[in-house]
Deep mutational scan, measured.
Amino acid sequence: MEVRTIKVFTTVDNINLHTQVVDMSMTYGQQFGPTYLDGADVTKIKPHNSHEGKTFYVLPNDDTLRVEAFEYYHTTDPSFLGRYMSALNHTKKWKYPQVNGLTSIKWADNNCYLATALLTLQQIELKFNPPALQDAYYRARAGEAANFCALILAYCNKTVGELGDVRETMSYLFQHANLDSCKRVLNVVCKTCGQQQTTLKGVEAVMYMGTLSYEQFKKGVQIPCTCGKQATKYLVQQESPFVMMSAPPAQYELKHGTFTCASEYTGNYQCGHYKHITSKETLYCIDGALLTKSSEYKGPITDVFYKENSYTTTIK
Rank of each mutant, 00 (worst) to 15 (best):
H276R: 00
C225Q: 01
I15V: 15
V203F: 12
T64G: 13
V3M: 11
S310T: 11
N14D: 10
G161M: 02
S86P: 06
A40W: 12
D62R: 11
M207T: 12
T278E: 09
K298W: 13
N147A: 10
K298Q: 08
Q216M: 09
M170F: 06
T260R: 01
Y269F: 15
Q175G: 07
A247D: 00
C271Q: 10
Q222T: 10
S25R: 11
Q270A: 09
Q134M: 06
H51W: 05
H90Q: 14
K183F: 11
T211G: 08
A177W: 01
T64Y: 11
T302A: 08
S171L: 11
P249Q: 03
H273G: 00
P224H: 11
Y269E: 15
T232S: 06
P130D: 00
T266W: 05
F174Q: 00
Y36V: 02
L17Y: 15
K127I: 07
I105E: 04
A250H: 15
S171T: 14
H51M: 10
Q230T: 14
T266V: 09
P300D: 13
P248Y: 15
S171A: 13
Y28G: 03
L179I: 03
L179S: 08
Y274S: 00
C271T: 02
S171C: 15
E144K: 09
Q251T: 14
D180M: 09
P78R: 13
E144P: 01
Q31Y: 14
N178W: 03
Y96C: 00
V203H: 11
T19M: 14
L102C: 05
K280Q: 14
T91A: 06
T232C: 06
K201F: 15
Y137H: 07
G194P: 06
M244P: 02
E239N: 08
L290F: 12
N49V: 12
E162F: 01
P47H: 00
Y214P: 08
L186F: 14
Y265N: 01
C225S: 01
S213L: 05
G288T: 11
F259D: 02
S294F: 15
T198K: 13
L200G: 02
Q238L: 02
Y73G: 02
N49E: 12
N49C: 14
L65P: 04
V160M: 05
P97A: 13
M244K: 06
N129K: 14
L151A: 03
N178L: 06
P47A: 11
A177L: 06
N147P: 10
I301C: 00
T211S: 09
L186Q: 11
E308Y: 00
K44L: 13
N110P: 05
F217K: 04
L173H: 08
A150N: 08
C261E: 05
T169I: 14
G33A: 02
T266H: 12
E264D: 03
A117G: 09
G53W: 10
E308K: 04
K191N: 11
E253W: 12
Y72L: 08
K44P: 11
L118N: 05
V8P: 07
R4Y: 14
T27E: 11
K106V: 13
L212N: 04
V185Q: 03
D38P: 07
S213M: 01
K183I: 08
T211E: 14
T278Q: 14
V236L: 08
S246L: 01
R139A: 13
G267R: 13
G194F: 00
T314P: 03
K46G: 09
P78H: 12
V221R: 01
C149T: 12
F9T: 10
P300W: 14
A150Q: 08
K233V: 12
A289N: 10
I124W: 07
T120R: 01
D180E: 13
Q197T: 14
Q20F: 09
L118W: 07
K95I: 14
P130A: 10
S279F: 00
Q237H: 15
M85W: 08
K127V: 10
I315S: 15
G101V: 07
K106A: 14
H74I: 00
N178F: 05
H256P: 14
E2W: 14
E68S: 08
K127H: 13
V160F: 06
